[in-house]
């Protein structure tokens, strides 16, 4: 009985997590300017990851994988919001010149392992016209 309840809960969490992910992706495509898209991406992304990892933890049950999953959760807990913050911070720095030519300054973004934040597509469009 307990197993069936746990697996139902896990399935629900996984479903909810992936829903958030899809909504975040949709948000990026639909929102007009940089900040709203960035908001959609980082918020839903973090929550979605929590839910998916939680679901996985339930399916994995007691043992070494559970311990590893908690470590991953803690790591994501730190890095994902910081990444969002750093993205917003650097946009803010270069925002002042968002109107003009994008200076060569790097978008340091979050270096290290987590550097695959989705680029803001509007820059892409403008760059193509350059």
């Amino acid at each position: 009985m307990i197993e069936s309840a746990v697996s139902v809960l896990a399935a629900m969490m996984l479903g909810l997590g992936s829903f958030f992910m899809i909504s975040g992706a949709l948000g990026i495509l639909r929102f007009p300017d940089f900040y709203s898209r960035m908001h959609a991406a980082s918020m839903t992304d973090t929550l979605g990851t929590y839910l998916i990892i939680g679901g996985l933890m339930f399916t994995a049950g007691w043992g070494l994988p559970l311990f590893k999953l908690t470590l991953i959760l803690v790591f994501i807990f730190f890095t994902s919001p910081t990444a969002g913050h750093a993205l917003a911070k650097s946009a803010q720095l270069s925002e002042l010149r968002l109107g003009g030519e994008q200076s060569g300054s790097a978008k340091p973004g979050a270096g290290g392992v987590h550097s695959d934040q989705h680029p803001d597509s509007r820059d892409l469009a403008r760059a193509d016209r350059v």
Partner: peptide
């Protein structure tokens, strides 16, 4: 591949871009 393909090479390319410009 994760460590290199997603980690180091974009990092190096970004720092090269920082100097060479993105156009």
């Amino acid at each position: 591949e994760a460590a290199v393909g997603a980690g180091i090479s974009p990092l190096l390319m970004l720092s090269t871009l920082a100097i060479c410009g993105r156009a």
